[in-house]
Deep mutational scan, measured.
Amino acid sequence: RRRVRAILPYTKVPDTDEISFLKGDMFIVHNELEDGWMWVTNLRTDEQGLIVEDLVEEVG
């Protein structure tokens, strides 16, 4: 499975499927959606939700 790491922190918009995260958080990518969004699991918090790919980098 594809893994990505947050390069910046992010605070979710209330009442959306987004998740908040810290710089350095690792995610497993489940689905890549339109307009650069990804459905992921945050490995630190075990939370699932949407993040935008501009805020993460690939992990080898």
Rank of each mutant, 00 (worst) to 15 (best):
K12M: 06
L55Y: 15
V13Q: 15
F27M: 12
V29M: 04
E57G: 05
G36C: 05
P14F: 08
G60N: 14
D46W: 13
V56E: 00
H30C: 09
I28T: 10
R1T: 13
I7G: 03
D46N: 15
G36V: 03
M38Q: 03
V13K: 15
E58V: 10
T45Y: 02
W39A: 04
Q48L: 09
G36R: 09
P14K: 11
I7N: 06
R3E: 10
E57P: 00
T16F: 02
G49M: 01
P9T: 13
G49Y: 01
L22I: 12
V13N: 14
L43H: 04
Y10F: 05
E57K: 06
V40K: 00
G49W: 01
F27L: 05
I19G: 01
V13G: 09
A6D: 00
G49K: 00
I28L: 12
K12N: 05
G49A: 01
I19A: 02
D25C: 03
R5E: 05
D54R: 14
G24W: 07
D46S: 15
L8E: 11
V56L: 05
R5S: 06
L55N: 11
Q48A: 11
E47W: 03
K12T: 04
D17M: 14
V40W: 01
T16S: 12
E58M: 08
I28W: 10
G24P: 00
T16I: 03
E34M: 12
D35E: 11
K12W: 02
N31W: 15
L43K: 04
T45R: 02
A6I: 02
R1I: 15
T11L: 11
S20P: 02
A6G: 04
T16G: 05
L50G: 04
D25W: 03
G24M: 04
E34W: 10
L50M: 13
L55A: 11
V56I: 11
M38T: 03
G36Y: 04
E34L: 12
M38F: 09
P14S: 09
S20A: 04
G36A: 05
F27V: 01
V40F: 00
F27R: 00
R44G: 04
H30F: 08
W39L: 08
I28C: 08
V52I: 14
L43C: 09
N42Q: 09
E58S: 11
V56Q: 03
K12F: 03
E47F: 04
N31K: 14
N31T: 14
S20G: 05
D46G: 13
D54H: 13
R1A: 12
I19C: 04
R44M: 07
L22A: 10
T16V: 03
E18K: 04
G49L: 01
Y10N: 04
H30S: 06
D15K: 09
L43M: 12
E34R: 12
D15N: 14
I7M: 09
P9Q: 11
V4I: 07
F21Y: 08
L22G: 06
R3S: 09
G49T: 00
E57D: 06
V52S: 15
E57L: 07
R2E: 05
N42D: 04
Y10L: 02
K12C: 08
E58H: 10
L43G: 03
G49S: 00
L50R: 15
D54S: 13
I28E: 13
W37S: 08
E47K: 07
F21A: 03
K12G: 11
D35M: 10
G36M: 05
E32I: 10
P9H: 12
T11V: 13
R5G: 03
I28Y: 09
P14M: 09
E47G: 04
L43V: 10
M38V: 06
E47Y: 04
E57H: 07
M38D: 01
D46P: 01
M38E: 01
K23N: 07
D17E: 13
V29P: 01
E47T: 06
V4K: 05
G36S: 06
E58D: 14
A6Q: 01
L22T: 08
I51R: 00
E47A: 07
V29W: 02
D35A: 12
E18Y: 04
S20V: 02
I28H: 08
F21I: 04
T11P: 03
T16Q: 03
W39M: 07
L43N: 05
F27C: 02
G60T: 14
V4W: 06
W39R: 06
F27G: 00
W39P: 00
D54N: 13
L50P: 04
D46M: 15
V59S: 07
E58C: 07
E53M: 14
F21Q: 01
F27Q: 00
I19W: 01
D35F: 11
P9E: 12
Q48Y: 12
V56D: 00
V4T: 04
E32G: 06
E57Q: 09
S20T: 09
N42M: 10
V59R: 05
D35L: 11
L22F: 10
N42E: 01
L8M: 14
Q48T: 15
W39D: 03
Y10V: 02
D17C: 09
R1E: 14
V13L: 12
L8T: 10
P14G: 08
F27A: 01
D17H: 14
I19T: 02
R1P: 15
N31A: 14
R2T: 07
G49Q: 00
I7C: 06
W37L: 10
Y10P: 03
D54C: 08
H30M: 13
D54K: 14
L22N: 11
L43E: 12
Y10I: 02
G60E: 14
Q48N: 10
T45L: 03
V52C: 12
E53R: 15
D17V: 09
D15I: 05
M38Y: 09
R44C: 06
W39V: 06
I51G: 00
V56K: 01
W37R: 10
N31C: 10
R44Y: 05
R5I: 13
G60I: 14
V4L: 10
T41V: 09
M26W: 10
E34A: 13
G49V: 01
E58R: 09
E53G: 13
V13W: 09
E47I: 06
V4F: 09
R44L: 04
T45E: 02
T45F: 01
D25Y: 02
T45P: 02
I51S: 01
E53I: 14
E34T: 12
T41I: 08
E53D: 12
N42P: 01
V56H: 01
M26V: 15
L33E: 07
I7E: 03
A6V: 01
E57T: 09
E18N: 05
S20W: 02
